Simulated scan of single mutants.
Amino acid sequence: MDEQRWIFVVRSLDRPGALTSAASVFSNRGVSLEGILGSGIDSNTTQDARMLISFQATAAKKEVLRRALERLSAVVAVEAYPYAAANLRAIASTRLKNSALPWLQQTVQDDVQFEIISTQGDETTVLLNGHTIAVEHLLSQLKDEQALVDVVMTAIAL
């Protein structure tokens, strides 16, 4: 079976060690994480934290990982999405060379939106959002154009 890219959205208790325990599930099974992001939604409770975990695995290995995460005491629920799922959106905060802005404005299609956040010197911070595959493709093009200075990317399930 071929490996695919996946994203888990994990609802968990917001307590010390929850993120470490989740990461250990992957490490103990020989799966490298592409990204992991943890956040609490309501700072007044410990009931509503989220972890977003991206990785590559076969469908069978994905199920093993999901079941192992669900057994953790801090985990409330795990939702699994193929990386290209229609209800996932990527969000990328990028630093670009200013010379790339005209190219970006001409290249961006309807499946990716962008907003200029700030300009400092010869670099501009741009927020990109859209379908995961479309944003990733645009980032690849920016890298090929040697216009991408830095990027932080995550996703959200709608």
Rank of each mutant, 00 (worst) to 15 (best):
E3N: 09
Q4K: 13
Q4Y: 01
R5M: 05
R5I: 03
I7L: 10
R11H: 15
S12I: 03
S12H: 08
L13E: 06
R15M: 06
P16S: 01
P16H: 00
G17I: 15
G17V: 14
T20K: 14
T20R: 15
A22H: 02
S24D: 15
S24H: 01
F26T: 10
G30Y: 03
S32C: 08
S32V: 05
G35E: 01
G35S: 07
I36G: 07
L37D: 03
L37P: 03
G38L: 02
I41F: 06
D42H: 10
D42M: 08
N44L: 06
N44M: 03
N44Q: 00
T45P: 06
T45A: 05
T46I: 07
Q47I: 01
Q47L: 04
L52R: 14
I53V: 14
A60C: 11
K61D: 12
K61H: 11
K61T: 12
K61R: 14
E63L: 15
V64Q: 06
V64T: 14
V64C: 05
V64W: 05
L65I: 15
R66C: 06
R66D: 08
R66M: 11
A68P: 05
L69T: 03
R71C: 12
R71S: 15
L72R: 03
S73P: 10
S73Y: 12
V75H: 02
V75S: 01
V76A: 08
V76P: 03
A77L: 13
A77C: 10
V78Y: 08
V78A: 10
V78H: 12
E79K: 07
A80Q: 15
A80S: 15
Y81D: 04
Y83T: 05
A84P: 11
N87C: 02
R89P: 00
I91L: 12
I91C: 06
I91W: 05
A92R: 04
T94V: 11
R95G: 03
R95I: 07
K97M: 04
N98T: 11
P102Q: 04
P102Y: 06
W103L: 14
L104R: 13
Q106F: 10
V108I: 10
Q109V: 10
Q109S: 02
V112P: 00
Q113T: 11
E115D: 01
E115Y: 02
I116K: 00
I117G: 00
I117F: 06
S118G: 10
T119S: 10
T119D: 03
T119R: 03
D122G: 11
E123T: 13
T124P: 05
L128N: 01
G130Q: 13
T132V: 06
T132Q: 03
I133S: 09
I133P: 11
A134G: 00
E136I: 01
H137I: 02
H137M: 04
L138R: 01
L138C: 01
L138A: 11
L139I: 08
L139P: 13
S140I: 02
Q141M: 09
Q141Y: 00
Q141V: 04
K143T: 14
K143E: 14
E145T: 05
E145V: 06
Q146N: 14
A147P: 09
L148A: 00
L148W: 09
L148Q: 13
D150H: 12
V152C: 06
T154M: 04
T154E: 01
T154W: 02
A155F: 14
I156N: 13
I156R: 11
A157K: 11
A157T: 09
A157G: 14
